[in-house]
Write a protein that binds this DNA or RNA. Structure first.
Lengths: 338, 338
DNA sequence: ATTCCACCCGTAAACGTTTACAGGGGCCCA
DNA sequence: TGGGCCCCTGTAAACGTTTACGGGTGGAAT
């Protein structure tokens, strides 16, 4: 692999200094004749500036990273899909980190910021922002935006949703449909979504005047087979359940599988509600009523916050809250929206 | 933002030269005492090496890019999911480019290689490798792996599948089930998959002794609503169709929607086969028989080829062919595999 | 006591840019 | 003709590393 041309090569060929070359290439005022000579030489040589050298000098890489738990999860996918074009339009490249929901990995990513290979980071820590996170963010010297909740007062841009309201919307909907034995298939309690949704479920029951029944609650991981497992367990323990609230769409899909095999009609016997309103919800059968937590919107908001910090420098941390909404489909009403 | 410590800071504090600092940090043989002093100072200062400076000096960035048409497509998602861990394990970061199936954008990415912000590239050009691509790859001076077919003799590592055989598998299956009026919902003909699958369809019909009937073929884009549109058109023109071969799973999902609304039983009246065997296939209802083109495997193979080139230097271009297989589900047999 | 070698370590150059600073040339005006 | 100013351009330093090269020190061998 022969070496490519540098500004030195151009300077030689054009018979000018490297300073002039740089000036021309950056559009700084220069004599017409010099401009022509330099551009000509650059063209002839097929010159492309070395981005690493430029980064070193300019102290910016024009790269931004997004760290998520798992690219396989459609929620993160929706975020990436929104983040990418926003950053691209602003001239940034996107780096992807999949942390496998591993806290140590997340911290590695944060510490990695100090290597300065990116100008900023968007991250979505599944198990919450610990003191270690906060310390690492402070030490990072690069803007960070967190998607998900952060402890009160943490000095970091933050995009969150209100899953409490989200669960509430779902339970109100089920209650209005006459359901009274509403089960809950949750994810791990030590994750932020899991914890929040557990609390929200109890609250919503309270508000509706329904009793809390431990038999109606099952905890597993956030994947489809976990949902299936949880649904089986719950059905065995509480056969009279008439609705299932699921902590995400994947869990709901697993539950649908189990209900189908068990010969329970959906929504006739058991209504099912998912959460995140991913693409899968409209593919499932029956199509899945799901609480939308605005993943796409959260992604876009995060990207915007980060860009703002990158372009306008430090400022007070900001919080953006995205309101949840309920997308009603056949798994609760039996009717598919057009 | 105060400046972080550099090897100069450490050298000063430890009372040694920057050369010694570098040697210690890179584990080159050094006197015990010096090692201790340097490590102590580095620790105290919370030193982290600047990756940009290191890249400039070492002429490598430890970054690799993956350029795909659209992150929204589950096929690419499956690839990313495989590529990421392989690269990560080898110490590379992953950059993502979504080119929106835009050839100009793809060429930009290739040309971008000359800026040297990555050490290598995996790309999956939707509309095929043109002469411009070949030229850009040659000029790139960085290893490139192409997923998808390339013109004979193009000097580039290449991972492909045999969609011809894939289509053949599907049509054989449908034929064995007694279907004789097999429609085809294809993607754009100017894309590589679209073109290849069109040819494969005719070939497979020939092999089965079935006549080719233009009324049974519809072309649209690769998304769900395109599949729906195409299915509607085809059903209108050829109501006696008894099977639908779809050029990918998204198209198949659209077709399923239309069939359901039209009151056609699947597979009773019309059997449906998708292609790519994405996660969606097992979520759909009825679950979708689909030709697996080994997306995950292709991703992994591409990552391995690239790593090999990165670590062992230039060599003859290699081609890896991934064999397709058929995953049979309810949309053709009416029976769900366990 | 001299020579040689081994071992450490420091100096300086290099990677490819950008940019502060100053020098040189031309022009205008006095 | 000389002074001042402006415009253009070149020199050199800086960004933070890695590494070739050579110098210095100390001990062993002669």
């Amino acid at each position: 692999m022969a070496e490519g041309p540098t500004i030195n090569t151009i300077a030689e060929r054009a018979g000018v200094s490297i300073a002039s070359v740089s000036r021309v290439l950056n559009g700084l005022p220069t004599r017409e004749e010099t401009v022509r000579r330099v551009l000509r030489a650059a063209e002839d040589l097929g010159y492309v500036p070395n981005s690493v050298a430029r980064s070193l000098r300019n102290r910016r890489t024009d790269q931004v990273a997004f760290a998520m738990a798992d690219i396989g999860n459609p929620v993160y996918l929706a975020m990436v899909r929104e983040i990418q074009p926003v950053l691209k339009a602003a001239g940034y490249r996107l780096l992807l980190h999949s942390t496998d929901a591993d806290v140590a990995d997340e911290l590695d990513v944060l510490r990695g910021l100090r290597e300065r290979y990116v100008d900023g980071l968007i991250m979505s820590p599944l198990r919450g922002v610990t003191e270690d996170h906060v310390a690492a963010i402070a030490a990072a010297r690069a803007p960070v935006v967190v998607i998900g909740s952060v402890p009160e007062g943490t000095p970091v841009d933050n995009v969150r949703t209100d899953s409490r309201t989200g669960v509430r919307l779902a339970l109100d909907h089920l209650h209005a449909l006459g359901r009274r034995r509403i089960g809950f298939l949750n994810g791990p309690l030590d994750t932020v979504p899991g914890g929040a949704r557990a609390a929200a479920y109890r609250e919503a029951l309270d508000a509706l005047g329904l009793p809390y029944d431990g038999d109606l609650v099952e905890v597993g991981d956030f994947y489809r087979q976990d949902g299936a497992r949880a649904a089986r367990a719950l059905l065995g323990r509480a056969p009279d359940v008439d609705a299932l609230m699921c902590a995400n769409d994947l869990i709901a899909l697993g539950a649908l599988d189990v209900l189908r095999r068990a010969g329970r009609e959906v929504p006739g016997d058991v209504a099912v509600v998912g959460m995140d309103d991913t693409d899968l919800a409209s593919v499932a059968w029956p199509t899945l009523t799901s609480v939308s937590l605005g993943s796409a919107e959260r992604g876009r908001a995060a990207a915007r916050l980060l860009l703002d910090r990158l372009e306008n420098g430090p400022r007070e941390p900001r919080v953006v809250v995205v309101e949840p909404s309920l997308t009603v489909r056949a798994s609760t009403t039996g009717v598919d929206p057009e």
